[in-house]
Amino acid sequence: MNAITLENISFGYKRNELVLSDININVPQQSIYGFLGANGAGKTTSIRLILSLLKPANGNISIFGEDIKKTIPHHFNKIGSLIENPSLYYHLSAEDNLKIWCKFFKAPKERIDRVLSLVSLKDAKGKKTSDFSTGMKQRLGLAIALLHDPQLLILDEPTNGLDPMGIIKLREILNQLRAEGKTILLSSHILQEVEKLVTQIGIIKGGRIVFEGSLQKLQEIKQQNIQVQLKVNDSDKAFDLITASQKSILENKKIKLVINHENELPLIIKSLVNADIEIFEVSPVASDLEKMFLSITNEKKQ
């Protein structure tokens, strides 16, 4: 059973103008699901649909196997969320903010200190939230989401406004939560952040899911269409040799070529060595998820 299932969901803010068309998302339980997409791709809209803040034009949404139309609002006992920027009562202290949400979620008061410790804000609990830094506000938002100990955590761009230390801390917290058996849906456009955290990935572009699967599946795709850069002693000769079998370009005496699979690389190097060309450097050009993500979204566009 999935923690979240979206089946053929379509949504538009205006009639005949769909923002999301026929999307399917499957978030397995106890996974960290990275929901990727450029700004305006439909990530936040999808999350708002999952949280019933918006109503879909078509399709079904299930949380832990139950149709949310039948379980609303009780299923929110299982969900904690942080949507875009944290929303706090800025005239109140962190503790007062948490007390308010404790009453709405019927969470025990002891949870306040527990979540404040978790996000390292225990020392600032009496401080007015208007005096908080962006990172502190973000962490307090996370504390609110965790207050009722939810099984499913939905975080929309949680690294917004966090400094590198804050991002590392957030990563630690999320890994800890996953180890406790929680499911986490994490949306982001900072792809390198997601790469280090997630087990499953969904990529949305223009309101359509263009990739969904495990990180391993993505790594397999990543091994295809690799861009490699070569630095050799005789770049013209090497370029002529490579161009005969491979698509390549010569730029600043460096050869850039695209190989379909990493297995092709040793063969190319062997052919260069056999032609008495000295190789100084072989380096990947597109190796991170960001380039991968761009290549996936661009392919679909074409």
């Binding site: 708002r48 949280l51 019933s52 803040l53 609002p73 009780h74 299923h75 929110f76 006992n77 969900i79 969320s81 949507i83 920027n85 929303s87 706090l88 009562y89 800025y90 005239h91 949400w101 709405f104 979620f105 019927k106 609110i144």
Partner: peptide, 19 residues
Amino acid sequence: FIEFQSNTWKYLYTTPLSR
């Protein structure tokens, strides 16, 4: 206005309480 200013409707409406 507190709810609009703090942008908290989205959190209020994701609590296990009906609107």
